[in-house]
Design a protein around this nucleic acid. Structure first.
Lengths: 359, 359
DNA sequence: ATTGTAATCCGAAACGTTTTGGAAGTCAAA
DNA sequence: TTTGACTTCCAAAACGTTTCGGATTACAAT
């Protein structure tokens, strides 16, 4: 059977307390005793029962990550990248990572959050793909439960997040297309509830107007962020007459799908049709032609929100008391930024070029 | 603060025991009492403390999944698919999923497994990308800890797994290339320690010989299963003179990288060069041209190994005692298969065609 | 009146750990 | 010799739950 502190205590003729403290390295146990205990523990193959420790310490050293995913699958590299960043960073801080997937805004999702928060299943949670009027954020804020989001929201409350400036991002790429001479620029949007959807759409629209281009409702198609969704949206766009000479998608996966649809029609990407994405997932660089896109350092963002969450949990400054801690911070300690907006970077690759008639 | 059983007990004037049993639905508490307790619990917003329950019940209702990944990132859709299958199935059975990423064969990986097993962090673990002389499997077997693997191993011991017949898989696709008339077929391999690497390589080699083709060592290049790895391997292969007219990669991601490398040289995939992969990840279908590959239902395999693991945990038949349970199985109960080998399916798409000189 | 039985309830122990608040012993300073 | 300080240890409580083994009451059967 598994060996417990009690077993060791019996073995070395000491109390459970002393064994515990010896292993924990407290200095109120004699050096010789400590060594005896350590030796016995090692020899008997002792490993602390993690659950028991959690119960006693009233923390789980666990982070929860609930992936909002429609349908059973998520083959989105966006989440892979993010998960890798989160997982590695959590590991570095000796936190376990609890992962589950739940459809956004579903009762299952709500129940998952309730279980985590009320059942104390984790010490904090990572929220991604923030939504308008995001109930997850509202709930976590109400409960005073530690969390950090990837993305802003439109709730009144202030909470810690990291986000990329999506508005500026699509401004950049739309302007890039306009500069190349494109006049009819299609846009493959995302589910309307997503915060970044609104921002990216606004960036697109405003840039068109700034260039004297009339936004055409027919050129904006809803997408579901999957490759297939981009494929189908592009099919619709390319059936228009006159058809757009450029397509910008809300994320890379849909942009790749759009490329595929265009190539099926015999169009040459970068000549007959320019395509732009958003994210710069690894596939973007290796696509053919490589995809022009707005870079979003997903892996690093995953690391960053995780680091912020760990600090939040360990530093105990609830968002409300941040003011106080600022005064009492020790020398050399740096204020943890709790609301970060990253500047997007336009990556120009082969998938974008001047429109066909302009040459 | 959080409300506990004790709080409810105080509120309704009952003992903690009765409250606990009322909520659990035992029939030794009066109907009226049960209702009072239920009402109070609901009103007070009671949620059981999951950790405490775990400790008492001596199980965690948690599965662990340690993703073997080199380097900090894994943008491999293979793992996304698998994780989705595992996560959804675990959820269906009310198990939580603990995910971590560790470099294969590293001390960190070993420590992770020790912690899970000895620290009773989870009730079972999922092992993927099995290796030759796989120390994870050896360890778990020794410890008698529940696990199910995706992939076989070469250890003497027998353990539960699901695997695809990789040997037959590469036989199929290699034969497909041979049937098309290809004589010089390159192969992008995987890290040698991986079980499927050996099998796939053998399938490739044997098929060549069966078709009277001399295996050429120069045509076999090691790959690391990433897109970049496939890209570089293909560059090497395509620099040969005469160069291969077909390339088969150990997985789709590398095949896509190979396509990219070939397209960079101006080659037309499916005409100048045929490319084949393995897995049939979602990207394969949407690649351009779509990728000929061997289908491996990764998502379903993820579900399946998870279901098997849950059965293993709940049905308590340790692998050794399976014989006994078989005798005592109740009517209608079906023997859970513990070693499954799936038949691969060749998916022919646009990336493969006859060699250029044959037309 | 006694016995048996069923229906309800509950105290205490248990899960394995950490922490609290001393206790006991030693030794040197006063 | 007392006092104080220091070192080393430990019993008991605590974390929140479930379970074990009764205890109590009511009521019907003898």
């Amino acid at each position: 059977m598994t060996v417990t502190l009690k077993d060791i205590a019996k073995q070395v003729g000491l109390s459970v307390t002393t064994v515990s403290r010896a292993l924990a390295g407290y200095d109120d146990v004699a050096e010789g005793t400590r060594q005896r205990v350590r030796a016995a523990a090692k020899e008997m193959g002792y490993y602390p029962n993690i659950t028991a420790r959690h119960l006693q310490k009233q923390r789980t050293d666990t982070l929860a990550f609930v992936i909002p995913t429609h349908g059973p699958r998520f083959s989105d590299p966006f989440f892979s990248e993010l998960l890798a960043g989160i997982g590695n960073e959590a590991g570095r801080h000796h936190f376990d990572l609890l992962v589950s997937t739940q459809p956004p805004d579903s009762e299952d999702e709500r129940e998952t959050y309730r279980r985590i928060v009320h059942g104390r299943r984790a010490d904090g949670v990572l929220v991604v793909r923030t939504r308008q009027n995001d109930e997850r954020i509202r709930f976590l804020s109400e409960q005073g439960f530690p969390f950090v989001a990837f993305g802003r929201s439109d709730l009144g409350s202030s909470f810690p997040y990291v986000d990329e400036d999506s508005y500026t991002g699509t401004r950049l790429i739309t302007q890039h297309m306009a500069d190349l001479g494109h006049r009819r620029i299609g846009f493959v949007s995302a589910p309307a509830g997503l915060m970044f959807c609104q921002l990216r759409l606004a960036g697109y629209r405003d840039t068109l107007q700034a260039n004297g281009l009339e936004p055409d409702r027919a050129l904006i198609i809803g997408g579901d962020l999957t490759q297939r969704g981009g494929f189908e949206a592009a099919q619709t766009l390319l059936a228009l007459d006159p058809r757009p000479t450029a397509i910008i998608a809300c994320n890379d996966l849909m942009a790749l799908g759009a490329m595929s649809a265009a190539q099926n029609l015999g169009l040459i990407i970068g000549q007959d049709l320019s395509v732009g994405g958003f994210d710069d997932i690894p596939l973007a660089e290796h696509a053919h032609p490589p995809l022009t896109t707005v870079r979003q350092p997903i892996y690093e963002i995953g690391q960053r929100i995780t680091r912020m969450l760990v600090q939040l949990i360990q530093g105990q400054p609830a968002p409300e008391t941040r003011q106080d801690t600022r005064r009492s911070r020790k020398a050399g300690e740096v204020a943890a930024e709790t609301q970060v907006i990253l500047t997007p970077q336009l990556i120009i690759r082969g998938s974008s070029g001047p429109p066909p008639d302009s040459g």
